Computed example of a mutant assay.
Amino acid sequence: MMKRLLIALGALTLVSSAAVAAEEFKPTGSVKQEIKWYGDKEEVDSQYIRFTLAEGGVRFTENFYVDYRVRDYIRYHSDEGSNTKDLRTRLYYDHGYLGDTKIDVRQRFEVRDSQDKNRFTYTPEFDFAEYFDFADTFKLRPSFRYQDDNNANESYKHVGADFLYYKEFATGNHDLGVEFNVYTRFYEQDFVSDNSKGTAEADAKTEDSNFATDVEFYIYYTYSLGQYNGIDYAFYYEFGLDPYTFYDRKVDTVEDKVVTESYDSEWTVYNDFELQASYKVNDSTSIYGAIAVEHANNEGRDQASDFKWQPYAYVGWRTKF
């Protein structure tokens, strides 16, 4: 199914490209590549490399935009293989204002394909930000998703409603951004037993819930440290509640008919501290990198988990056209 969706989206992109020629609009966009190393957490072997082969977007017309991201995860310590690839493509069409209002209407289609699952999401978006001085983004949107694994043993579908808020404050050397999102979803998740082990009934994982709410909250803070020898330096801090998930009733993980876990909420909190550097090659291209550390918990379920430190570093380049 996902391959057919990718082909359909590719065809839509070609049609849009033809529309560009008809409108004599020059496409603009950006591309970047990045390699990011994560070290071991405290007392945990968890090193891996995240290589972003390509990330960016192309605006074909004033209304039609496509973004893309291709990543490869190379893990040093994993029982499930060392490499995991992840491909995400999003198509946006901006309809402009709704009638005589200041409500900006946009449609978004997303296809995501990874080693263990594929998914398709459709979300029409309604942005009310122009009605509020305290918001750069103030969106309401319904959400529709279908997802399955590559072996077709598991499928997932949901319908939901989302709220997204973002505001940026910039003063002198300081940049502060605040983001708050709420995602609600009614979902159905089916698991098909895999009898490859030759047992009468193989291990199965089931979720006893059909409603969930995700709450996300982020703070982004950048302080410019100035420029030295043509290189710009900055201190960056990010806090994230990513996310706090509430289920309508207990969620059980079952193996051989034995409940190994039971919970009705889970949450992740992290704090990132980065020393960033960037060098502007020309008006369109720059090179950047950072050394950093993260302090985060390990998805606490019903109660807090231990917070652990994990170092990381990255380097990359980006250009626009």
Rank of each mutant, 00 (worst) to 15 (best):
F64V: 07
S193R: 14
L9E: 14
Y314K: 13
I35W: 02
E125G: 03
T61E: 03
A135C: 07
Y244D: 02
D256L: 11
A292K: 08
E43S: 10
Y270G: 06
Y314R: 12
V44W: 12
K205R: 14
F191I: 04
D252F: 03
R50P: 00
D133H: 11
T13H: 07
G160E: 05
N282H: 04
F109A: 14
Y93Q: 05
L9I: 12
I7V: 10
Q47M: 05
Y92S: 08
A152H: 14
R88C: 01
Q147S: 10
E294G: 10
A11M: 12
S286Y: 14
F246G: 02
K102T: 03
A234R: 06
R50A: 04
H174R: 12
Y228L: 13
P124N: 01
K197E: 12
T123F: 00
M2S: 06
D203P: 05
L12M: 15
V293A: 10
S155W: 10
G29R: 11
R119G: 00
D149N: 15
Y65E: 06
A313G: 12
G96D: 04
V20M: 15
R108L: 04
D133L: 13
V159I: 14
G81H: 07
V58E: 05
H95K: 08
T206W: 08
N83Q: 13
D190W: 02
T319N: 09
D248F: 01
I35D: 04
R71C: 00
H174C: 03
T260W: 09
I291R: 09
S265H: 11
K308N: 08
Y233K: 02
D306W: 01
Y187C: 00
E125W: 01
I231P: 05
S278C: 01
H95N: 07
S78L: 11
A152K: 15
D306K: 13
N181L: 10
K41Q: 15
Y93N: 10
I219R: 09
G99R: 07
H95R: 09
G96F: 07
N83T: 13
R301C: 02
T184L: 08
G300N: 06
E216R: 11
D203R: 10
F163E: 07
D45N: 13
G300Y: 06
I231E: 03
T206S: 14
R106I: 04
E188A: 09
E255W: 05
S265R: 13
A161M: 13
A54V: 05
T89E: 09
E238D: 07
S286A: 07
V111W: 11
L14M: 12
Y279N: 04
T199R: 15
H158K: 12
Y221D: 07
F51C: 00
I103Y: 07
D86A: 10
L98N: 02
Q227W: 04
I287M: 13
F307A: 05
